[in-house]
Design a protein around this nucleic acid. Structure first.
Lengths: 97, 97
DNA sequence: ACCATAGGCAAGTCGCGACTTGCCTATCAA
DNA sequence: TTGATAGGCAAGTCGCGACTTGCCTATGGT
């Protein structure tokens, strides 16, 4: 649903996670944790990030593949492209004609 | 800020308001109220809609022009176009090549 | 077998956002 | 000037979402 996508994007921490994944796909939970703490200075527990990933995953913005004891996360931009065109008028000025 | 745009889009009622404005620009608060109640069956007070409009306005998604005792609201899609390109990879597959 | 690593589940705290209620201001018509 | 219309301000209630804490499962290395 579009509802889940908007709610997922509402949180700044979840947007940071998307920032991490657009930079490098296939990161594990612990990788994302350390990179958020060291890179952005966020002091969050592992469970907090885990719950955020669950939200992003149920919104379809993140796909995960389990492999042994690792779980890799990939960004999926497909839901993003739908939602915003909702309010873009068909006769909008073209940027790149 | 992009922060305000995402927070504004997080609420379903505010998205309905954008739906109303993309259909017809320049509506007043009371027009939006009645059309939300009759069209979508939402039971919301006038103040609730007013506060939602304030959020949309501070996010830059809605512009307002006062004229006499009326206040007309217009949709501004410009903030929308920025925020989503944030996670769209430059080498994304083209839909219309 | 043992321990460390990678992750999940569940209950609990807490603050913020959505909504209401009540009252006030301003503009227009009669 | 009075009343009706259009809107604003402020305090208060309440539920949901973000985060923590504690414990549990499973895979891999040695």
């Amino acid at each position: 649903m579009a509802e889940d996508v908007f709610k997922a994007l509402a949180d700044p921490t979840r947007r940071r996670i998307l920032d991490e994944l657009v930079e490098r796909d296939g990161q594990t939970l612990f990788e994302i944790c350390t990179r958020l703490v060291t890179g952005h200075g966020l002091g969050l527990s592992r469970q907090a990030i885990s719950q955020h990933l669950a939200v992003l995953e149920s919104a379809g913005l993140v796909l995960s593949r389990r492999q042994g004891r690792y779980k890799f996360h990939d960004l999926n931009t497909e839901p993003l492209e739908r939602i915003v065109t909702r309010w873009l008028r068909p006769d909008a000025p073209e940027k790149t004609p």
